[in-house]
Design a protein around this nucleic acid. Sequence first.
DNA 1: ATTCAAAAGTGACAAAAGTTACTTTACATC
DNA 2: GATGTAAAGTAACTTTTGTCACTTTTGAAT
Lengths: 208, 208
Amino acid sequence: MSEQLKNTFPSFSNQLIQDIKKNEVIKNFSAGEVIMRTGQYIKNTILVTKGTIKVYREDDDGGEFFMYYLQPGQACALSMVCAAKNEKSQIMAKVVEDAEVVMVPLSLMDKWMMEHRTWYEFVIGTYRNRFEEVLEVIDSIAFRAMDERLEFYLKRQVEACGCKELKLSHQEIGSDLNTSREVISRLLKKMEQRGLVLLHRNQIEILM
Amino acid sequence: MSEQLKNTFPSFSNQLIQDIKKNEVIKNFSAGEVIMRTGQYIKNTILVTKGTIKVYREDDDGGEFFMYYLQPGQACALSMVCAAKNEKSQIMAKVVEDAEVVMVPLSLMDKWMMEHRTWYEFVIGTYRNRFEEVLEVIDSIAFRAMDERLEFYLKRQVEACGCKELKLSHQEIGSDLNTSREVISRLLKKMEQRGLVLLHRNQIEILM
DNA sequence: ATTCAAAAGTGACAAAAGTTACTTTACATC
DNA sequence: GATGTAAAGTAACTTTTGTCACTTTTGAAT
């Protein structure tokens, strides 16, 4: 396991890896599982070693808005931000590909900031990257109409899965973007006419 | 000045105040000045001691989207996040009430994280608060229609200025929300009919 | 092969938001 | 008091997005 940690988080010092190893609790989750809910108290920071996790913002009426992916080598920035105070989760996280995560208690998370330079840098880097990603999400909803938001969304999916065949239903895209399936179907068809995508059942081939 | 710093940032330790004092560069800005532009390299973290600064996200076509206020006792989270790398600013900051700020070089910003517990906590707290504020902004644009977004916007303005008479033109609100003046006028009139606001020239009285 | 359910297609309509083009109002200042 | 200007009001229209109701397609299970 320490070998794998080292591979997934190459920036971590050996000392840090040892410390993590001493305290680690490894958990496995299957696709579809919700590993963190809005309002739930956060007790751990999550380091992803395998799989893919989707992070959402929820509203009161059951709406789910997709924010970003967590993938191997990454950590949940929000659980880190909440370290100091005993805060509730502001987000919901759902596993989309069977995942393995290392749970780091918040107390250690905080302690290591002082003890391990590589941990400190990882945490600060995680903040920065997520903050920037979230700002880009704001751009897309604040400045762009649904057709461009859909393109932006699809591009991010391609990046995340590393392939151009997205296994997504129109319904799922619609709820990720907080709009309706019909709207997505309509816009996807226009994109197909423009030669940007090829539509199949439960799969979208990106030609961009 | 160290007295004032101590008052504005009560959580800072005396040692930290001394360190800031040793290195500080104080700058004054007048209302209307842009103190940070998108794309500009960040060399300093900004601690606000007086006045009010509005932070915007910009798009390529000159659109400005209001994100949050910086007020005395607060700091620019993004300039902190950029500390590690030599990053460009992702945001634009405009002074709305004559402001005084303390410029802290990024190198010190980073160094103090290890040396001053109160600085570390301030920085982490700033990250958390801004992240949460930004998530709420996402909620409003992702889940809410313009009428509710306008209400949310007005409430934040009331919080920021601490009074119920907002000196804002419809034009300014429109551009903060990235919509047109006409739409804002329309919605404000509806709000007036519902008894939520009173409209005057260049001023909106909030009755909520 | 038949059945079933999820996914996608579709047309018609409603509502929200953006746009245009113009008028009216309020206020400062000359 | 006349005048100029920024702010706000407004009507008419277009576009975009959301919704409804329904059909068709596709693939899997029986």
